[in-house]
Each structure stands twice: as structure tokens, then as C-alpha cells.
Design a protein around this nucleic acid. Structure first.
Length: 818
DNA sequence: ATTCCCGGTATTTTT
DNA sequence: TACCGGGAAT
């Protein structure tokens, strides 16, 4: 990468940095906006520093100000600062904010990035020390799994009893701990039918042969290089004079070792994190790293950021009360100067559907400001769930009432099958040795190349010691396979030859106008062929686009749309190669849609975000805290779940509503559950218990008059489940929640006029659909309109059955994309 | 080689 | 309930 080339001349940079030190410190206006502890975190530049930054305490502000300060005081040049984040988003944000602080004066920071991105660069520079070539490919989890599967099959292991997934997670765990195959301790190595470590070794061998590295390797290899080659390590130690780490509580052991190695000399390391927000333990993150920071770096300064600038006092009280139940924590208490605001609201429902319905109505009220509050934009509202299956109830409900929503963190763009397929074509064009990519698309679209043909290709390739693509060529030229299969394969091989030639010509800059316009499909265009056009040609000539065009499934048009988007994305890059490198590391896709929408996401996905209004549904024992977490990790698991609750609560700025349902439709089965134990941990003084609407005139429960929220005292919990219990709790009718509920009923109960609801949705809602018309729906595909009532249509979908949906969610079938 | 049907399975997922 | 993977049928 160009970044690396720029900075590779180590000594030249070092010479320059000396002059930087001589630079006079300029005034530092960014310091004035900081509170005392933030300022301490910024000004304590030397030696180890741990900044314990609670949720919403201005962590990023402190971090960026610290970097600005390093630059401003002339302590370091931009290239001498190593700043590590976990996500590309965080890296991007930091870059922007630093830019804003120091003005455009200083060129970008080359070593600000994610653990993975930074390590790719380091590894590419020393690939040979890890047995790789510097142009190694980065495998995604899909490729990884396929490789494991092949190994398991080759070893004659029963896939049913020993699924590749299990091996993958095992190896992942080991890599997170920075264990090479030889280092895996015996008891661990014996896992997976006693073959764990040997399979790990085989897998690593295969990766080397493929000149590939998986995500774990990026860290593992570099740590091993640092350990085995002190000269290399020394170079980087000198190079990075100051180290900053964001989200330190999420580091795994490999990352910890990496940091410790780099910081060893000068110990100028500043880690920022929040042990209370450690929620990725199951993914290898070690809360221990942050907990034992002072031991690891004796003399470390620990700075606590506890003043919260995000939430109301009631919300903070709720968060604090819950997290205080955790034993294993460094201890922090958030406080605010903000007023109490509205209390945290708690409500129980009979079942999950009612919960979704109620939340839908609450959101509409929030948006319209009919609850006596300033209207909240849909963008400022989020529903945070523990597990993604909970999202469906909300999607269904919002689809029916026409509430615009967006699901965040679904399958990511680059993980979609069609995108992976398309990229596999590009991968083979760019690196013909990429056997995994070749395998993925040999028979996509169908070319009559089944198992047998593919095994044949494999065999020939192995016998001749060549790549799969070359193996295929030998097979074709030698007249192997059935006539039909041979024809399909011959076309594919010829296609790759052509595309590769074009790609090479592009790289060499030897493409003349019109020179390569040899295909019938490609319309004559002016100017030289670009890599974007080449990509389009590859997808067209290979028959891939055609495959989806002829596909009748409801998702086919969307897939074509995605492919189109992919090709468009290529324009941002110089060539196919650069694009592939980017995609391997930056698997995110920011979709900035214009219309305001309510966000639905998991609690994990919400970390780092904030919203004026947050709904936390599904607080039931077993679901949240998740039974599985508790079974698998005991108290540790429970504490991590509790931290998840803390993360959820602290996302809210103004309005927070926690809810639970007595019954839930899970995997097609009805399950009942008790309210979450975390509900008992909420502080009653800061919580308002609402009485759920429902049958029997509205109420079947009461708020508890004192103490916590024992399950028995909560509305919606049907212990005993009879009317007498409900009657006994008659004081519910006097509760503020009940009064409010009554008041609200009149405003937007079931008889609410349509207009009121429609304020939320598109003005075109009542569109001109006719009975019998063919329509297309984003989620349900094609269908026929059976009935029209106002803005609601009853549609018989080809695939999804009969549904009632809002008119604005469908388009005429012939206007549908593709 | 492809399709179709059955049974087993089912958190959270920054790169 | 929904999806995936494997085996059998075409």
C-alpha cells in the first residue's frame, strides 16, 4: 500500500522528527473545553496512562485532544503516533476530529487505524518472516470455513459430530490467545476428538500454501515476528513514540501482547476504555486486560472520566444501580449536571406482539410529541434487542402501521452471497492462484460442473502442482470431463484469460481506445476501458448477472441492485486489486438514507451510539440475561450480560423505556418467562412503572409500593394468572402510569384517526393501487392486490402468503427494480 | 447434475 | 417458525 511505502523510509522520518521536537508549542484552545479529568488524560503524555471512561463521558474528545496535544507540543510527528481502534468507523471519526482540532495543517496520521488494518501493513512488510508473500490474500470467515471443511473431510472425520464451525471457533480462540499450533496446551489441544491441535497445524499449512491469512493471523503472525526478530520489533518501538488504544476493554490476549511488545521501551501508552462496557468476552476479549493494567504497567496513572454529558440523572441512576451489582469491576460512578428529566419507564406485557404494538404506538406519540414532550425525530429513536430474532416482531408491526424503520447490523453488504460471488470472480482475475475464490464460482452460474467435475479439477491441479484454474485448463485441453462440462469449463477458462489480459493491460496503462472492445455484449464506449467497465464485463460475460436476471425469487432484484452498487463502488478505487484489499478489511457499508427512520438493532450493535429515546424490550430471564451465556460462562457470563444492560441503558439521552413480556413466540413455540433479574436491580425512585393496556378494561397488575421490582409485584406477570390477583392490585389504577395510559388512550387508541398515524409516513401513502394489480414489496416480493382499505392493502404474495401492508411499501410490479 | 424434501438446529459478531 | 445441509430422486 502507498501508506507503507511513504513511511518505510524510517530513518528519514526520524531525522525530521527531531526538528519537530524543536518546534515551539502553539496555544492549545482544545484544552479549554475539557473538564479536569479529561484534561489530565490529555496532558499526562509520558508513561502509562489508563483512562477509564464511562459511557458518554467524552472519551473520544479526550483521546483526540490528547493526539492534538502530542502534535501541538511537538512531542511527536503524526507518523510517530500509533493510535489503534477496533472499528473502521471509530478510526474514521478520530481522523476527522483530529483534523478539526489541529486544522488541516498536519497531514493525515498514517498509523491511526484498526488493529487489523495496521497489522496488515506490518505483515505485508515482513511477510516472508511468516512464510508468506507480501501480496497474501486475507480470507474472510466464509473462505475460512470452507477450508476447515476440506481439511476435516480430508482427515476422514465425521462432519456431523465434529462440525467445521466448531473447529473454526476453536482455532479462533487459540489465535486470540496468540497460540501457534505448537503452543496450544495439551488439554486444549485434545479438543475436537483429540485432533484439535493437529488440525490447527494442518490449517495453518494450507493457509501458507494458499498464500493467505485469516483475521486472527494478522495479529498472530505479527506478534510472532516481533517475538522472534528483536531487530524488527526495535524498529517499530523506535518508530511509534506514543501509543494510544481505544476500547481497551475489548482487546484480546494477542492484541495485548502486541501492545505490550511495542510499548516495552518508552512505555508511552495510553489506553482508554470502560470495563463496564466489555461485552465481547465471547469473542475473545479479555476484561482482564483492563483490570490488570496497573500491574502490567507499574506506575500507571489511572484517570476516571465520570461526568456524563449524555443522559438524564434518572437514566444514569438506573445504569449505575444495575452495574453496581457486578463484582468484577474497577468501579466508577457516573454523574451529571443535567436535570432528572423523565423517569425510566418500565412496563410488562402479556406477550411479545403486544409489546411490539405498544412500542409502535409509543414511538408514534414520541414522534408527534403527543406525550407532552418535544417531538423526537424517528432518527433519534432506537429499539435495542438482545438477539436478532426479537427484531421480527417489530418489523412486522412497523410494516403494518407504516412506521419507517431501519434494521442495523443485518447481513453486511460484503457478506451477501451475490457480492461474494462477484468478488470471487475479481479475485481470480487478480490472483489466479486463489483456489478458494475459483471454487466458489466454478459452477455459479451453473455450468454443469458438479461434484465429480470439481473433484477432477482438484485432482489434476494437485497432480501437476498448479492452481485450480491451471488444473482446469489442463483438463479442458486434455479433453477430460464430459462434453457438456468441458464446454462450460472451457468457456470459463477462456473468460478468465481474457479478463486477466485486460486487467494486466489496464495496470500497464497500455489500453488504447477501443482496442479491447472485442465482445459483442459490450457497447462501444468512448475512451479507454476502465476497471469499472472491466468488472461489468466480467460479470456479464460470465453469465453471473444473467443468472440473477432470470431468477424469479423475490430477492433477485435486490441482488442485482447490490451488484450494481458493487460495481459503482469500484469507481473509488484505482484498480480491482486495491478494491479487494479494501473490502477485506473494511466490511462496513454506511447507508445514509434521507428519510428519518427508527433504528432497530442489537445491544452489541448499539455500543458507541446514543439516541434521545431508547426502548429496551425483552427483559426476561433466559432471554436477557441470556440463558446460554449463564450456562456457558456462569457468573462471568451473567456479569457480561449485565454490562450489556448497562450499555443499553446508557445509550439513552432523554427517554428510556424498558419492557418485558410474559409470553413470547420463539421458534414457533410459546414460551413464558419471568421478568429479567436486571429489572429487580433498577432503582425504584428513578423508575415509573407503567400499567400495560390489555384486556379486562386495561389493567392486570400494579406497581409495587416499595422495594425493588419483585416479579410478583409487576404488571403483566401472570403468576397465579387469575382475575383475583389483578383485582388485589387495584392501586394500579391510581398510579401515574395508569393515569397517563388513560389519557393517552383517548388520543391514539385503537380508534385513532388514520391521518394522525399517517403524519409519520410518506405523504404518498395512499397511492393509486387497484384490486388485482401486480405489485412488488421490498420484503415479501411480488404479489397481487386483493383488497384496499384506505392506505392498507391486502396482498396475496407469490412466496410470502397473504399480508396486510401499507400502500407506501409497495410499488407496481412493472416499476420494480429490474 | 440438479432439484427437492426432510430433519436438525436455533445468541451476541468491531475485523 | 425458518433456514441450512445432506441425501435421495429425477
Amino acid at each position: 500500500m502507498s501508506d507503507w511505502d511513504e513511511s518505510a523510509d524510517f530513518d528519514a522520518w526520524e531525522a525530521q522528527s527531531l526538528s519537530a521536537q524543536a518546534m515551539a508549542a502553539r496555544p492549545a484552545p482544545y484544552l479549554d473545553t475539557l473538564n479536569a479529568p479529561q484534561r489530565a488524560a490529555v496532558e499526562r503524555l509520558d508513561g502509562p496512562v489508563l483512562v477509564l471512561a464511562g459511557a458518554g463521558t467524552g472519551k473520544t474528545r479526550a483521546l483526540t485532544a490528547r493526539i492534538a496535544h502530542l502534535l501541538n507540543t511537538g512531542r511527536a510527528r503524526p507518523n510517530e503516533i500509533l493510535a489503534v481502534t477496533f472499528t473502521n468507523k471509530a478510526a474514521r471519526e478520530m481522523k476527522n476530529r483530529i483534523g478539526a482540532l489541529v486544522g488541516g495543517v498536519i497531514e493525515g496520521m498514517p498509523w491511526l487505524g484498526t488493529f487489523h488494518a495496521l497489522n496488515v501493513r506490518i505483515l505485508r512488510a515482513h511477510a516472508e518472516l511468516a512464510g508468506l508473500k507480501s501480496n497474501f490474500t486475507i480470507l474472510d470467515s466464509d473462505d475460512q470455513l470452507r477450508l476447515m471443511k476440506q481439511i476435516i473431510q480430508a482427515e476422514g472425520i465425521d462432519e456431523k459430530r465434529w462440525p467445521p464451525r466448531l473447529l473454526a471457533s476453536l482455532i479462533d480462540r487459540w489465535k486470540n490467545r496468540a497460540w501457534s499450533p505448537a503452543m496450544v496446551p495439551p488439554d486444549e489441544a485434545a479438543q475436537f476428538d483429540g485432533k484439535g491441535a493437529s488440525l490447527y497445524a494442518l490449517y495453518q499449512d494450507r493457509l501458507k500454501t494458499l498464500n493467505a491469512a485469516d483475521f486472527g493471523d494478522l495479529l498472530l503472525h505479527v506478534v510472532q515476528i516481533f517475538q522472534a526478530h528483536p531487530d524488527v520489533l526495535a524498529k517499530y518501538q523506535r518508530w511509534f513514540r506514543y501509543i494510544l488504544v481505544d476500547e481497551y476493554q475489548d482487546t484480546n490476549i494477542a492484541q495485548y501482547l502486541w501492545l505490550r511488545l511495542l510499548a516495552q521501551g518508552h512505555r508511552n501508552i495510553c489506553c482508554v476504555g470502560d470495563d463496564d462496557q466489555s461485552i465481547y468476552g465471547w469473542r475473545g476479549a479479555e476484561v482482564g486486560n483492563i483490570l490488570k493494567f496497573e500491574k502490567d504497567f507499574p506506575g500507571a496513572e489511572v484517570i476516571r472520566l465520570e461526568q456524563n454529558y449524555r443522559s438524564t440523572a434518572h437514566i444514569l441512576a438506573a445504569a449505575g444501580s444495575v452495574i453496581h451489582q457486578n463484582e468484577t469491576r474497577l468501579g466508577k460512578t457516573l454523574w451529571t449536571e443535567a436535570p432528572g428529566g423523565e423517569k425510566v419507564r418500565l412496563i410488562g406485557h402479556w406477550d411479545g406482539e403486544e409489546e411490539a404494538r405498544w412500542i409502535g404506538e409509543e414511538i408514534e406519540a414520541l414522534i408527534q410529541g403527543t406525550r407532552g414532550n418535544a417531538p423526537v425525530s424517528a432518527d433519534g429513536i432506537a429499539i435495542l434487542v438482545r438477539a436478532s430474532f426479537q427484531m421480527r416482531a417489530f418489523e412486522d408491526r412497523f410494516l403494518t402501521i407504516g412506521l419507517p424503520y431501519r434494521v442495523i447490523g443485518g447481513p453486511r453488504f460484503y457478506e451477501r452471497a451475490e457480492i461474494r460471488d462477484a468478488m470471487a470472480y475479481f479475485r481470480v482475475v487478480v490472483s489466479p492462484d486463489d483456489g478458494l475464490a475459483f471454487e466458489r464460482i466454478v459452477n455459479t452460474p451453473k455450468r454443469g460442473l458438479g461434484d465429480k467435475a470439481q473433484q477432477e479439477i482438484n485432482r489434476v491441479a494437485r497432480e501437476n502442482g498448479v492452481s485450480l484454474l491451471e488444473g482446469a485448463r489442463i483438463l479442458v485441453e486434455g479433453g477430460g470431463l464430459s462434453a457438456k462440462a468441458r464446454k462450460g469449463l472451457a468457456e470459463l477458462v477462456a473468460g478468465f484469460d481474457r479478463w486477466r489480459a485486460w486487467n494486466r493491460a489496464l495496470a500497464a496503462g497500455t489500453v488504447a481506445d477501443g482496442e479491447l472492445l472485442v465482445t459483442d455484449d459490450r457497447p462501444e464506449t468512448d475512451g479507454p476501458l476502465t476497471h469499472v467497465e472491466l468488472a461489468q464485463v466480467i460479470l456479464d460475460e460470465s453469465g453471473y448477472t444473467e443468472m440473477w436476471r432470470t431468477d424469479k425469487s423475490p430477492e433477485a432484484p435486490g441482488r442485482l441492485e447490490n451488484i450494481k452498487e458493487l460495481v459503482q463502488a469500484l469507481e473509488e478505487f484505482e484498480n480491482l486489486q486495491g478494491f479487494l484489499e479494501h473490502v477485506a478489511l473494511v466490511m462496513d457499508n454506511e447507508q445514509d438514507e434521507s428519510a428519518p427512520k427508527v433504528s432497530i438493532m442489537t445491544l452489541h450493535g448499539a455500543k458507541g451510539l446514543e439516541f434521545p429515546a431508547v426502548f429496551l424490550p425483552g427483559w426476561e430471564d433466559g432471554l436477557f440475561p441470556s440463558q446460554r451465556s449463564m450456562d456457558e460462562s456462569g457468573l462471568k457470563g451473567l456479569e457480561e450480560e449485565r454490562r450489556l444492560a448497562y450499555v443499553g441503558i446508557t445509550r439513552a439521552e432523554e427517554h428510556l423505556t424498558i419492557s418485558f413480556a410474559a409470553n413470547r413466540h420463539v421458534y414457533g413455540r410459546w414460551q413464558s418467562a419471568l421478568p429479567s433479574r436486571f429489572i429487580d436491580e433498577l432503582p425504584k425512585d428513578h423508575v415509573e412503572v407503567l400499567t400495560p393496556p390489555g384486556l379486562y378494561g386495561g389493567s392486570y397488575g400494579a406497581s409495587s409500593p416499595g422495594g425493588g421490582f419483585g416479579a410478583d409485584s409487576l404488571p403483566g406477570v401472570m403468576r397465579g394468572s387469575d382475575l383475583e390477583t389483578r383485582a388485589a392490585n387495584a392501586d394500579a389504577y391510581n398510579s401515574p402510569g395508569w393515569a397517563r395510559m388513560q389519557a393517552r388512550r383517548g388520543q391514539y387508541g385503537t380508534s385513532q384517526p388514520r391521518e394522525a398515524r399517517n403524519l409519520v409516513i410518506d405523504a404518498k401513502a395512499v397511492s393509486a393501487r387497484t384490486v388485482g394489480e401486480r405489485v412488488f414489496h421490498q420484503k415479501f416480493g411480488y404479489g397481487e392486490v386483493m383488497e384496499i382499505e384506505g392506505d392498507k392493502l391486502t396482498i396475496e404474495f407469490d412466496k410470502a402468503g397473504t399480508k396486510r401492508v401499507v400502500a407506501s411499501f409497495v410499488t407496481a410490479a412493472d416499476e420494480a427494480p429490474f
